[in-house]
């Protein structure tokens, strides 16, 4: 094993590139309470717009997205913030997260009696979990422990070259592309949404489009995501992991230079791959520096 990665050794044996405490509302109605809890040092609160009024397979799909983000190795502990009457029940979600091997605390607004009491309980939980996750020691490891996620619009040359460079170096690569472009990856195994990436190159099912894909990749265990979007697309990050944003054309790179990491018209696969390693080992991406907390759920049915 050649040592090139430094990260947190999680209880389930995986390696984390970051050490976040995620504050996760199980429903949009808990967003503000989660945000107030997330102001506690060392916590990252996400907000989203779902968790209620959902039907059919869409419920399970959203639950898998929550679960995947909560059990990604970049996250060392989770506080689930529930309202109480939502479709995606927070308590059940917390149990699933715990069963997934993660440290988890649960706070419920209706159960605890309102915003302020829930915020108090949630902040205490963050402090407690923060101390606990120090047990996940910093270790050195080989590239075979890296899961690289690539978010893309299709099977472009840049995507293929980066995936190949990572694979040859020994990393696992998981790709998220719109459902219609999944067929471009002949021979690559398809993994279900929320399933762990396979060795080599695999493609995740129902990953959605654009920034939605970041959640699909986190759910497959990716510690670093590279966003290789087409021309003109704006750069976005992910709440609990680094996203290397590569501009799809020189025009959009020049216009939004501060929010991109690389210009795809001048950076080749080897340049991106080198950055992936240094980002894994602690270098902050543009989205991390600016504090982007993007967390976009892919829906497969309309809201009721």
């Amino acid at each position: 094993m050649s040592v090139t990665l430094r990260g947190r050794r999680r209880r389930d044996g995986r390696l984390g590139a970051r050490n976040h405490v995620l504050v996760l509302p199980s429903v949009v109605c808990a967003n503000q309470t989660a945000t107030l809890i997330g102001s506690e040092p060392g916590a990252v609160a996400v907000v989203h717009q779902h968790g209620c009024g959902q039907v059919g397979d869409d419920v399970a799909h959203t639950e898998r997205a929550f679960l995947g983000s909560a059990t990604n190795p970049n996250v060392g502990a989770v506080v689930v913030v529930s309202l109480g009457c939502e479709t995606i029940q927070g308590r059940r979600l917390a149990r699933l997260i715990e069963r997934g091997g993660q440290r988890v605390a649960f706070v419920g607004i209706q159960q605890l009696g309102g915003t302020f009491k829930t915020v108090d309980h949630g902040r205490l939980a963050v402090g407690r979990l923060r101390a606990e996750l120090e047990a996940d020691g910093l270790v050195e490891a080989g590239l075979e422990e890296l899961v690289l996620g690539i978010a893309a619009d299709g099977a472009t040359r840049a995507v293929r070259e980066l995936a190949e460079a990572a694979r040859i170096a020994g990393a696992s690569v998981v790709l998220a592309v719109p459902e219609g472009a999944r067929g471009d990856w002949e021979g690559a195994p398809v993994i279900g949404y929320g399933q762990a990436a396979a060795a080599g190159i695999s493609v995740v099912e129902q990953a959605g489009e654009g920034t939605e894909q970041h959640l699909a990749l986190a759910g497959a265990g990716a510690q670093v995501i590279v966003s290789l979007r087409g021309p003109g697309r704006a750069p976005q990050g992910f709440a609990t992991g680094p996203v290397l944003a590569v501009a799809g054309d020189p025009g959009i790179y020049a216009a939004l230079e501060d929010d991109f990491d690389l210009d795809g018209s001048s950076a080749g696969a080897e340049d991106v791959w080198r950055r992936v390693i240094s980002v894994f080992n602690g270098e902050q991406t543009a989205s991390e520096k600016r504090g982007a907390r993007d967390f976009v759920l892919h829906r497969i049915a309309r809201t009721m």
């Binding site: 717009q49 959605g208 049915a301």
Partner: peptide, 17 residues
């Protein structure tokens, strides 16, 4: 200040799976 965008259909690829 909760806010959410309402859709009538899910994004175009949604029903292929």
């Amino acid at each position: 200040r909760e806010f959410a965008i309402s859709r009538t259909v899910s994004p175009m690829t949604a029903f292929s799976g």
